[in-house]
C-alpha cells in the first residue's frame, strides 16, 4: 500500500504540493484529475523519488521512499511508470526495449527476459511488432510498448502520467483499453488523467487536485454526481 503523509513540494519559490495525505490500497485504481499546474503529475514523481520532497513522507509497502538508506533502484522496480511522452528507446527493437531492464536490473537470463518481454508485448497487443524499431510504430503503439516495458519489471503498482495526452485522438482508445485491461486484472494503478470517461468507469476512487491541494477524494459517483467542493464543480462543468 502507498501512504502519503503531509507531503510538501517546492520548485524554488513555487509551492507545488501543499500538504497531501493519501492512502492507496492494493488492487485499487485511483484517478487523479485537475487542471494543469495543480501538482498532480508532481505527486507521481514524488512517489518513485524522481523528485525530492521538502516535508512529509511517502511509504510504499512500508518503505520510506525518501529516506537516505532506501535503494531507489530497487524501489522503482515496484512502481512501473508510464509518461505522457512514451520515451521508447529508439536504438532498441520493440522486444529489446522491454527485455533490457529485466535483464540488467532484475538479473534475469537472456531467455527469461525475452520470454517475459514477448509475453507482455502480446498482452498489450504488440505481438507482431517484436522485431520492429519504435520509429516504425504509431504513438498509440509506442505508448502500449511503454506499458509493456513497465509491466515486464513485474511491478506491484503502475503510475500513469497523462498517458494519453500526447496521442492523436483516434489513438487514445487503444491505450485506454490496455489500461482498462490492467485494472480488470487487479493491478494497483494511479492514473493522472484528463479522460473523464476513463476516470468515471474504471477507477475505484477519484481525487481532484486544485493548486497543490487535494480538494476532494471519493468514489466516482460522488465526485461526478455530487461534488462537495466549489472548485470541483467548476472544473467538471468546464471539462464535461
Amino acid at each position: 500500500m502507498i501512504q502519503v503523509r503531509g507531503l510538501h513540494k517546492h520548485f524554488g519559490d513555487l509551492h507545488v504540493l501543499k500538504g497531501i495525505d493519501l492512502d492507496v490500497n492494493k488492487g485499487e485504481v485511483l484517478s487523479v484529475i485537475g487542471s494543469s499546474g495543480s501538482g498532480k503529475s508532481t505527486l507521481l514523481y514524488c512517489l518513485n523519488s524522481l523528485e525530492q520532497i521538502q516535508k512529509g513522507s511517502v511509504h510504499v509497502d512500508g518503505i520510506d521512499v525518501h529516506a537516505k538508506q532506501t535503494d531507489v533502484n530497487k524501489l522503482r522496480q515496484k512502481l512501473g511508470m508510464v509518461f505522457q511522452q512514451w520515451n521508447s528507446f529508439p536504438h532498441l527493437t520493440v522486444l529489446e526495449n522491454v527485455a533490457l531492464a529485466p535483464r540488467i536490473v532484475s538479473g534475469k537470463s537472456k531467455e527469461e527476459a525475452y520470454a517475459m518481454a514477448e509475453k507482455q508485448l502480446k498482452h498489450v497487443g504488440l505481438g507482431d511488432k517484436l522485431k520492429n524499431y519504435p520509429s516504425s510504430l504509431s504513438g498509440g503503439q509506442q505508448q502500449r510498448l511503454a506499458i509493456a516495458r513497465a509491466l515486464a519489471m513485474e511491478p506491484e503498482y503502475m503510475l500513469f502520467d497523462e498517458a494519453t495526452s500526447a496521442l492523436d485522438p483516434e489513438k487514445v482508445g487503444e491505450v485506454l483499453d490496455t489500461m482498462r485491461l490492467l485494472a480488470e486484472e487487479g493491478m494497483t494503478m494511479i492514473c493522472v488523467t484528463h479522460e473523464m470517461g476513463f476516470a468515471k468507469e474504471v477507477s475505484d476512487r477519484v481525487a481532484y487536485f486544485h493548486e497543490g491541494i487535494m480538494e476532494e477524494i471519493g468514489p466516482p459517483e460522488q465526485i461526478f454526481q455530487a461534488p462537495q467542493s466549489e472548485h470541483t464543480r467548476k472544473f467538471l462543468a468546464n471539462v464535461l
Binding site: 518513485n48 524522481l50 522496480q77 511508470m81 520515451n87 528507446f89 533490457l100
Partner: peptide
Amino acid sequence: TQLKAARCLGM
C-alpha cells in the same frame, strides 16, 4: 526524458 524513463525502470 530518456534518462528519466531508464531510471524509472530501476536502472
